[in-house]
Design a protein around this nucleic acid. Structure first.
Length: 845
RNA sequence: GGGCCCUUAGCUCAGGGGUAGAGCGCUUCCCUGACGCGGAAGAAGUCAGAGGUUCGAAUCCUCUAGGGCCCACCA
């Protein structure tokens, strides 16, 4: 084909040109008829669509894309979908803030409701359906922005395979998987104490917890024995004395032996509680004897369960003390104290209790200030409370040693890059404290697909749920009617009610490989791409996304959902802190794209070792940009000489040596890629490229400007090596390599074959000639540089001393060497390796 | 309290038993017909510290000190 080499090539603007072309040509389409053996399927992380993409996304997705592109060039049918995680609490929060609304499920749907242009202040309550509609509107806007950014980044995604976690298709898959879990007994509902966020009014799962250090204080408080003796406990939460159900000490603790089996009375409330023994009680903490409340912390839950204690809950789901005075408080004085607490939040109750205890003399001494870890929902601002409620769970080994062991083994079976990340998985599974709580008392998510019959007295029968047929999915039990009922029977005696809960977003995103593979709706696709080959993701979500995906795949198919996982690191700011919005150190990805170009940003991302946390480094992007520009110009040079010359025309020793070097680079880059070490591959390719331009190009330049067989060999070698370099760089720098490829080749470089040693062998030889010649050239340059003269200054004498064999090799490249060095001749001396160059005294030519 | 990772040139990072590496930055120089978003060259490190294994340790082992992260029952 005719060359179309521009006079002044530029890398600016390549992104929009080639993104459009790739889209138009279907360059990254997953081939319809691919054999399973030829498929490489990627389970892309669906980013949360609740704000903006940051450099961390760019970093991780670029690394995965480099691998995708490599596999595609290796001839794999790459299945590379994209997903948007748009359901769940993050979206609800964003919608509340963006429009100034709140969801009130008791309100009627407003047909004519228009999305507010300005956020309402104070927030305007709207119906659940209106609220969900706003969620859809906003996520669509956000998703467009996400797609635009990922396209600029050059992700070789097949955008026809885009999914969202709130779509009807996804809901169908999510509900289907849930119903199957339910049928097999892997999903179940249970009335139990759960960690509860009183602001969001929803249950929270173990994986979403985080500890935060908070100031607190130990209060030493007297409980009373019937004989008048006082028993001192220490607590940070005196406001929970009214929900105290027992005291507990270690069975071996000598101080409390006499108390076990007896009862004491709580201060102020005068409620009789037993003193019990349990090995979880720590003799060294506080006074060694603790009060058990329902519920102050998760240890309370353990004691409550194992010691079979009653439930005396006082804090409601809204975080306030219940209005009615509890029946277990019987003394008039105690009932009066409680009346003062009712309706307050824990904080206020805490203050009030401290002053009452102080007045009554039950508070001993001064409070002792401490800092302690308090459990928070990772997105919440108030400490979690523990309330008893009915919730849905999926078994994950947290309560079942056999399942846990099986899941640990799945983790061992998985190939991790880097390998040490597997430890985090094992530790998480080993540390599970209970099954996976999947229900949320929220609105924008996949509904739990269950109804309950209502008996004649109007009470729902949770023991006998009504389930939909798989064919009818997805369903929304809050608006759809179960089989055998009519809509009017909702909430009526003898009728039905819908489960109001939705599933947590992880309950759906744990099915991402099934969603992307269209499980249940496209069997042909599913069979070709599942289980997938690769799960790329960040290490902070090993405990959530990775683990939950393994759980679902294990339960549904008894196998891993993918063979490999690559774990990418985090982006740190220059102070080595994780970049995050709250720290205000976030850099918007568009700025680096505009300043350096997408190839340069990708270069930065691909330079980081797999799994390594990496500093945001504009310096690295500048280098990437320089590399891209160099590729453009070196290509222009190579393609400026002759029409295509067959690689069989390579014959001079120097040219063959260079091709020999190319073969070595192809080999090491391929090995690195096979181990998912794209960074090592890039390093090898880049190093070879710079020595190619610095040494080889300079050595053959003047020969290449000439004619005949010697020039032809140079042209052929240059073209062959350029073709190899473009293909080697293509996964990293898709834009500049595609641009150059288009100057002289048909089709996309991204569908070209990854270079092989085999295609170079016929034109390759040992690279010693090039190594030696480059050393001589380097010496000459040093001499000129030290003499502070131009590189064009002629060399009057050039002496090379070495063994006869090696001298013969230098001699074989003599004409190239004298041209590049500016020497008239080379003097060869047998002896130990030595190079001597003398600059002409007065010969400026 | 337990665990994982990191500590190598001013900076960002490779390397992983045999004479310390790259790029950036810095210094000096060049203006050559692919490239000024050029090109050539140079200076620069007790490989965090201490022990140990070894003929030989930046590399393997132990401990210590910093940094980061994950986990843990909030009395």
């Amino acid at each position: 084909m005719t060359r179309k080499v521009p006079d002044k090539p530029t890398i600016d603007g390549l992104e929009s040109t080639w993104d459009a072309r790739w889209e138009n040509d279907g360059t990254y389409h997953f081939p319809a008829g691919a054999d399973r053996a030829d498929v490489f399927a990627i389970d892309t992380p669906p980013p949360t669509v609740s704000g903006s993409l940051h450099m961390g996304h760019v970093f991780g997705y670029a690394q995965a894309d480099v691998i995708a592109r490599y596999q595609r060039m290796q001839g794999k049918a790459v299945f590379y979908p994209m997903g948007w995680d748009d359901n769940g609490l993050p979206t609800e929060r964003r919608v509340q803030a963006f429009y100034g609304v709140s969801c009130d499920p008791s309100l009627q749907y407003e047909e004519t409701f228009e999305p507010p242009v300005e956020p309402h202040d104070p927030a305007r309550p709207i119906s659940r359906r209106n609220f969900v509609e706003l969620c859809h509107i906003l996520t669509e806007k956000d998703e467009k922005v996400f797609e635009d950014l990922f396209r600029i980044l050059g992700l070789s995604v097949d955008w026809r395979h885009l999914y969202t976690t709130i779509s009807a298709t996804t809901q169908r898959i999510s509900q289907r998987a849930f119903l199957r879990n339910l049928a097999r007994g892997e999903a179940y509902a249970q009335e139990a104490p759960v960690l509860w966020d009183t602001d969001f009014q929803t249950a929270v799962a173990q994986a979403e917890l985080e500890d935060r250090e908070r100031p607190g204080a130990y209060y030493r408080i007297a409980f009373h024995r019937d004989n008048g003796e006082r028993v001192f406990i220490e607590t940070t939460r005196p406001e929970l004395i009214c929900s105290c159900v027992a005291l507990v000490a270690h069975p071996d603790d000598a101080r409390y032996q006499a108390l076990f089996g007896s009862t004491v009375r709580t201060p102020l409330f005068d409620v009789e509680v037993p003193v019990m023994a349990h090995e979880l009680a720590d003799p060294d903490k506080g006074s060694g004897i603790a009060m058990i409340c329902t519920f102050g912390d998760t240890t309370d839950v353990t004691w409550w369960r194992e010691l079979d204690l009653p439930t005396r809950a006082v804090i409601g789901r809204d975080g306030r003390y219940r209005e009615t005075t509890p029946e277990w408080i019987t003394s008039p004085a105690g009932r009066q104290v409680y009346a003062e607490l009712s309706g307050t939040f824990a904080r206020q109750a805490h203050k009030a209790m401290v002053s009452y205890l102080s007045e009554s003399g039950d508070l001993d001494g001064e409070p002792r200030p401490i800092t302690h870890a308090v459990k928070f929902y990772e997105r919440g601002e108030r400490p979690l409370e523990i309330v008893t409620s009915r919730q849905w769970y999926i078994r994950n080994g947290g309560r079942d040693g056999e399942l846990r062991q099986a899941l640990v083994e799945r983790g061992e079976e998985l190939e991790w890059v880097p390998d040490y990340m597997r430890v985090r998985y094992r530790h998480w599974v080993d540390g599970l404290a209970g099954d996976w709580l999947i229900s949320r008392q929220r609105f924008f998510g996949v509904p739990v697909p269950v109804w309950y019959p209502v008996d004649l007295s109007g009470v729902p029968d949770h023991a006998h749920p009504l389930l939909p047929e798989e064919a009818d999915l997805p369903v929304d039990p809050s608006s759809d009617t179960p089989g055998g009922y009519v809509p009017d029977q909702r909430g009526q005696p003898g009728g039905f009610v819908g489960d109001m809960d939705i599933m947590d977003t992880w309950a759906t995103s744990s099915l991402s490989p099934l969603i992307a593979a269209r499980w249940g709706s496209d069997d042909g696709l599913f069979e070709r791409v599942y289980p997938m080959d690769l799960r790329p993701q960040g290490h902070e979500i090993i405990r959530t996304w990775l683990f939950s995906t393994v759980v679902r795949a294990h339960l549904e198919f008894g196998a891993l959902p993918w063979h490999h996982t690559t774990i990418n690191g985090w982006i740190l700011d220059p102070d080595r802190k994780k970049m995050s919005k709250s720290k205000g150190n976030v850099i918007t990805p568009l700025e680096p794209f505009e300043a350096y170009g997408a190839d340069a940003v990708r270069y930065w991302a691909a330079s980081a070792r797999p799994g390594a946390d990496t500093a945001f480094d504009e310096g690295q992007m500048k280098i990437g940009r320089r590399l891209a520009i160099k590729i453009l110009n070196a290509s222009r040079f190579v393609l400026g000489f002759a029409e295509d010359v067959d690689s069989t025309a390579v014959w001079t020793p120097l040219d063959k040596a260079m091709i020999g070097r190319m073969a070595a680079v192809v080999d090491s880059a391929t090995r690195a890629f096979e181990a998912y070490d794209y960074a090592k591959a890039l390093e090898a390719i880049e190093g070879a490229f710079w020595s190619w331009t610095d040494d080889y190009l300079e050595l053959v330049k003047s020969r290449a400007y000439g004619h005949g067989e010697v020039a032809g060999s140079a042209h052929a070698a240059l073209q062959l090596s350029l073709s190899v370099f473009l293909r080697l760089f293509a996964p990293f720098l898709p834009y500049v390599t595609e641009e150059v490829w288009s100057w002289w080749r048909d089709g996309s470089v991204h569908r070209a074959a990854w270079p092989t040693v085999a295609e170079l062998e016929h034109a390759a030889s040992d690279s010693t000639v090039l190594d030696l010649t480059a050393q001589v050239l380097s010496h000459v340059r040093r001499t000129k540089s030290e003499a502070k003269v131009s590189m064009r200054t002629p060399v009057s004498t050039l002496v090379v001393s070495d063994t006869p064999e090696r001298l013969a090799l230098v001699r074989s490249a003599q004409s190239d060497l004298v041209e590049a060095a500016g020497a008239r001749d080379i003097e060869y001396v047998e002896g130990s390796f030595l190079i001597e160059a003398t600059i002409a005294a007065d010969d400026s030519g």
